[in-house]
């Protein structure tokens, strides 16, 4: 029974867990390790599986907790802009426009990374992964109203910073 649940509901979301861990850690190898650890932890708690309402949210929560533990334990250095330098696409049709776009993108990326971890995760889970408020509440172990309030605050903070970028170029 547990093996079926694991194969049908946990194994298919492993790529999502990996992406989530990667976002938090900024490193592929560590993200893979954390995902493996999360899958092992899920399997070790297999007796809880039949009672869970949302298996995916539970797996995401375990992955997040493991990733945050890793960050705390090693004073983890998140990948900075230098690490991301290799990610800039080589082929650019209009170098000036692309440079400008990359500059703005870099600022937005930095702005998002400077947000508190909770706000950043909320925005990523909602705007990039498309999770519902209830699913986000399950993942982050928050009340659904707290999710809405914090998402509103996070978007407000992002908007203010975007306006600063637009008006003052900061």
């Amino acid at each position: 029974m547990s093996l079926d649940l694991f194969l049908n509901q946990v194994v298919p979301v492993r790529q999502k867990l990996f992406r989530f861990a990667y976002r938090l850690l900024g490193n592929e190898e560590d993200a893979q390790d954390i995902t493996q650890d999360a899958l092992m932890k899920v399997w070790s708690q297999q007796e809880k599986m039949p009672e869970l309402q949302n298996m995916e949210a539970w797996c995401m929560r375990i992955t997040r907790n493991l990733a945050l533990d890793k960050i705390k334990s090693r004073k983890y250095r998140l990948a900075d802009e230098l690490d991301r330098a290799g990610e800039v696409p080589a082929a650019q049709h209009n170098p000036h426009a692309m440079a400008e776009k990359n500059d703005v993108m870099g600022k937005v990326r930095q702005m998002i990374h400077e947000l508190p971890e909770k706000y950043r995760t909320l925005i990523q889970l909602r705007d990039m992964d498309g999770y519902s408020y209830q699913e986000i509440a399950d993942i982050l172990e928050l009340d659904m109203n707290d999710v809405k309030v914090n998402l509103h605050r996070a978007r407000k903070a992002v908007r203010e910073k975007l306006q600063n970028i637009q008006v003052y170029g900061l």
Binding site: M105, K107, V108, R159, L162, Q166
Partner: peptide, 15 residues
């Protein structure tokens, strides 16, 4: 709408 362009561009790029 223009103020939101970089943010949605960021989402698209990250995805």
């Amino acid at each position: 709408l223009q103020e939101a362009v970089p943010l949605f561009g960021y989402f698209q790029e990250e995805i």
